[in-house]
Design a protein around this nucleic acid. Structure first.
Lengths: 121, 121
DNA sequence: GTACTTGGTAAGAAAAACCATACCAACGAA
DNA sequence: TTCGTTGGTATGGTTTTTCTTACCAAGTAC
């Protein structure tokens, strides 16, 4: 991918890669899953350190609010990207980590960061 | 990436890949650039066929409105992903195509679609 | 018994994204 | 002269997302 492709080469790759057999785009639902102001940053923090407590995450993501962090984590958990472990202690302790499904996004991040390093100044 | 990594292996990859020298995340701005209900679909259509006229795109993306298509295309053009060529004819003719920068997103789409094919039922 | 801790909830306001509808300019065809 | 064409713009309304603020439960330290 370092030499610019011809348009014909590009077309060929697109046809075999982006389209699945039934003609649906598998990219859109993934991007939708990662949408929202905080989700990527949460995943990013959990890449760097895992597990992390709720309060730890909140401090890293300042100025995120409880509400937003809770909602984003719930959705990430519902999508199977994040695992939540609750300990029966007082004051409460809850730890979040990436699942294998979440960690498998690494090649995506790799591709994006390659692009970003080329094009983002 | 077909065999699950250990967490240590994962950490190592993250450290060398996702972080740029200055410590900023290059993933977030890319995802932000692709956010919005229509942008990915526009890029997708332009992958399949390029160049495309405004009206052609609108028909492919039905039920998109003029306003939304115009806005999305403007932003994609401002981000350098889409090229707009206007011809001095009546009735007007305007053609849109992907730039090299836009086409270079292909590895990203590839990585995403690999993930999607593994995890999206 | 009072204050402090953590990991949240609840309710409503503000902001952003999105949509519906109407309109326009300029030329060619009828 | 009127209609149809294309690629938009303008305006205002609805819906979705995000933010603000206040509150809670249950222990522990003082």
């Amino acid at each position: 991918m370092n030499n610019p492709m011809t348009y014909e080469e590009f077309q060929e790759k697109v046809g075999s890669i982006i389209l699945t057999e039934n003609g649906n785009c598998p990219v859109t639902p993934v991007i939708q899953m990662l949408q929202g102001k905080w989700k990527l940053q949460i995943i990013y923090e959990l890449c760097i350190q895992s597990p992390m407590r709720f309060g730890q995450l909140r401090k890293m993501l300042e100025p995120i609010t409880n509400t937003m962090l809770t909602n984003a984590l719930k959705e990430l958990e519902a999508d199977g990207l994040v695992y939540r472990e609750q300990y029966n202690e007082i004051p409460p302790r809850v730890e979040y980590s990436l699942t294998e499904k979440g960690r498998d996004l690494l090649p995506v991040f790799y591709a994006v960061s390659q692009w970003g390093m080329k094009y983002i100044p």
